[in-house]
Design a protein around this nucleic acid. Structure first.
Lengths: 149, 149
DNA sequence: GGCATTAAGTTGTATGTACAACACCAAGAA
DNA sequence: TTCTTGGTGTTGTACATACAACTTAATGCC
C-alpha cells in the first residue's frame, strides 16, 4: 500500500539532458572565473593532470580524463602553442612524453586563486551533498571504464 | 576522536573536471545509441522540449535548457535544415515561434527506442541512486537560475 | 515625432568534442 | 625477411558551445 512507487526516474527524465545542462552551467562558472588568466577550465584540468604526473603520455591522459585521442591531440597542441607544454617524442609521432614548461607551472599558480573562487561558487550552487554525490559518480564511472564495462 | 573529518571535497577534486568527464562518457552513450537515426542527443533534447511545448520561442528554450542564445540559434538552424523544425517569425528576426514539422515528430518517434536503450545503459552505469542525485541537482540548478542566484 | 534603451537573433571567431580515415611504427607470424 | 596487425598520433569534417559585436525590432521618454 502506497509503498514507495518511487517515481521511476528513467521513464521521464533524460539523464544526458540533465547532465549536459549541469555541465553548461558549471563549466561557465569556472570559465568566467578563469577568464582573466587566459585559461579555460578544460586547459587548467589538462595542465593539472600532466603536472601531477610529472611525465605522462597522451594515452594515459586520455584514459584518465576519458577524452578521445583526436580531441586530446588538438587540446594538447593548443597548450603547446601557448608555451605551457613540451612534447618530447622519442621518434616522430609515437611515444610522446608530456611535460609542463615553467610557463605552464606558472599558469597553474596564476589560476589557482581564480579556481578557488569558482569552486566555492559551484559548491554553493550544488551543495555539499550534491558535490559529494557527483564526485562519487565520477569515480564510479572511471573505475567501471577501467574494468571495461 | 576520528570524528568524520569527512574529506573536504572542495580541497581536492575539481567539480567541473568531474562533471565534464561524466558528461563526455554519458553523452557518448546516447550519441552511440542514436547514431543509426542520424540524430544526436542534443538535437533530440531540443526536439523534445519544443515538441512538448507546442509553440515556443528561442528565448524560452534558452532559459529552459540554459543554453546561450547564439549556441541555440545555430542548433535550431541545423534542425531547420534537416526539415525537422519550422520557425515562424512575425517579422524577420525577433519574435520567432518554434514548431516541429511532421518529420520532426517522426524523428522523435524513431529515436525513442534507441533513447530507451541508452537510458538503460546510463542507468546501469550510474546506478538508480546516482541518477536520482543527478536529476535532483539539475532541478536545483534550474530553480536557482530562475531566482537569479 | 525623434531619440535612447533594451530585448532578440545572427554572425565572426575560438575552443571542445568525436568519428573516420590516414600515416607511422613496433612487434610477431609466416 | 616480408607481411600483417595493433597501437599511437594527426587531419578532415561536423557538431556543440560561448563571447563579442552587430542588426533589428519594440518600448518608452522627451
Amino acid at each position: 500500500m502506497g509503498q514507495d512507487e518511487d517515481m521511476k526516474t528513467e521513464e521521464c527524465v533524460c539523464i544526458a539532458g540533465k547532465l549536459r545542462l549541469l555541465n553548461r552551467v558549471v563549466t561557465s562558472i569556472y570559465d568566467d572565473a578563469l577568464r582573466p588568466t587566459g585559461m579555460t577550465i578544460c586547459q587548467m584540468t589538462l595542465l593539472t593532470v600532466i603536472g601531477e604526473s610529472g611525465l605522462t603520455t597522451p594515452t594515459e591522459v586520455s584514459a584518465c580524463l576519458q577524452v578521445e585521442k583526436s580531441t586530446l591531440s588538438r587540446n594538447l597542441n593548443r597548450l603547446r602553442k601557448q608555451g605551457w607544454l613540451e612534447m618530447l617524442s622519442d621518434a616522430h609521432g609515437s611515444g610522446q612524453r608530456l611535460k609542463l614548461t615553467e610557463e605552464g607551472q606558472a599558469m597553474l599558480e596564476k589560476g589557482k586563486p581564480h579556481w578557488i573562487v569558482a569552486q566555492g561558487k559551484a559548491l554553493r550552487l550544488l551543495g555539499d551533498r550534491g558535490v559529494k554525490d557527483l564526485v562519487a559518480l565520477a569515480e564510479l564511472v572511471c573505475s567501471q571504464q577501467k574494468n571495461g564495462l
